[in-house]
Design a protein around this nucleic acid. Structure first.
Length: 251
DNA sequence: GTACGCGTTCTTCCCCAGCT
DNA sequence: AGCTGGGGAAGAACGCGTAC
């Protein structure tokens, strides 16, 4: 069971969030609450948390400030709740290595999906083994290009319906221009990159897990299973099932 | 370097049928 | 139930030219 810290300046919305889900069924225990940055920092000095949830609803500026401060102090996964669709906010969240960003209104199914994603990450790489050189400051000094942000978005939101249009809108760039810039830098179109990332992840899931193919399709962002079958065969030359059998034989 | 318009090409979705 | 693939329609991405 992973330990979660809820940072909620507002007691009412804190209760709403607490009651939104059967947390323990998702592998998390709401271990502590903080209603200010100083409270949260004090808790982090004495305890190790796997996940920090920060409410942006009362004030996005304060929420992001809390996020920034806590990121410098802790390697825990962070989920931001109730923010707007404003790109500047999203961009900052990405730079702070936030695991997920759920915009307002926060729906229980979104939060559940987010917890599921974080749990998988923690299962693979627990907080205490995370390298600390991925801090915001080091990330800031690297000055990631816009294409790096696009790629980062693809990696983190692969399970979602990703379109260049959506990303370019968030990044405040023209869709055609961003696509052109992406191709210039990566020598492949945005869709080729997206397909490659999805297929490589699907291959790993087929090899390493016993997930159903429709579950894997969903995990890598395909809502239509038939389309996933088509693209997978086109990409690998084998159907998903054949690929799994082959990889099992040679494993 | 950035942005937009527009025609073309490609991807995705949806529906369906058939196989194991 | 789960997997595979064909075909059509709609929407998204791409390529190219142009402008600031």
């Amino acid at each position: 069971m992973y330990k979660a810290l809820l940072v909620y300046p507002d007691n009412i919305s804190r209760e709403e969030t607490r009651l939104m889900l059967p947390w323990e069924q998702h592998g998390f225990r709401l271990h502590a609450y903080a209603d200010s940055l100083s409270d949260a920092q004090a808790l982090l000095r004495t305890q190790l948390f796997d996940l920090i949830l920060i409410d942006l609803k009362p004030s996005q500026a304060i929420g992001m400030q809390i996020c920034e401060q806590l990121r410098e102090q802790s390697r825990a996964s962070i989920i931001l709740l109730g923010g707007s669709h404003d790109f500047q906010l999203l961009r900052k969240a990405m730079a702070l290595q936030v695991s997920d960003y759920i915009a307002d209104p926060v729906q229980p199914e979104d939060l559940a999906a987010s917890l599921c994603k974080v749990k998988k990450e923690l299962d693979v790489q627990p907080v205490h083994s995370k390298r600390f050189n991925l801090s915001y400051e080091s990330k800031k000094s690297q000055n990631p290009s816009i294409i790096d942000l696009v790629k980062q978005y693809v990696q983190e939101q692969m399970h979602e319906n990703i379109t260049l249009k959506k990303i370019s809108s968030m990044l405040h760039f023209n869709c055609a221009y961003l696509g052109q810039k992406f191709k210039d830098q990566e020598n492949m179109s945005f869709n080729e990159y997206l397909l490659q990332q999805r297929m490589e992840k699907a291959k790993v899931l087929l090899e390493k897990t016993d997930m159903r193919i429709y579950e894997i399709a969903n995990e890598v962002g395909y809502t239509e299973i038939d389309w996933f079958y088509k693209k997978f065969k086109e990409y690998t030359g084998a159907s998903a099932n054949e690929y799994r059998k082959q990889s099992t034989v040679y494993a």
